[in-house]
């Protein structure tokens, strides 16, 4: 597996983590838990954006990794 595809896989994982956290934040009963889940979800979102940009850079540098 090339590095580019590994990074793409990580991008998918982080999206899944973000979605899971969001769902837990909605379902949790206690305010504290909701807040923790929500804040970590936002961290995940930032990381997701970084990874997304990185994937874009890689695709631009090496055309053959374009697409999934």
């Amino acid at each position: 597996m090339t590095v580019a595809s590994q990074v793409k896989q990580s991008l998918a994982s982080i999206k899944s983590i973000e979605a899971n956290l969001s769902s837990l934040a909605i379902r949790s009963q206690s305010k504290e838990a909701q807040q923790s889940f929500h804040e970590t979800m936002e961290i995940m979102h930032d990381i997701q954006k970084d990874l997304h940009t990185r994937v874009g850079e890689m695709e631009r540098q090496e055309e053959q990794y374009k697409g999934f």
């Binding site: 923790s36 889940f37 804040e39 970590t40 961290i43 995940m44 930032d46 990381i47 970084d50 990874l51």
Partner: peptide, 12 residues
């Protein structure tokens, strides 16, 4: 981002 994730793990 690895550091950010570590913080998130500690929190979660």
């Amino acid at each position: 981002n690895s550091q950010k994730l570590q913080k998130a793990i500690d929190r979660l």
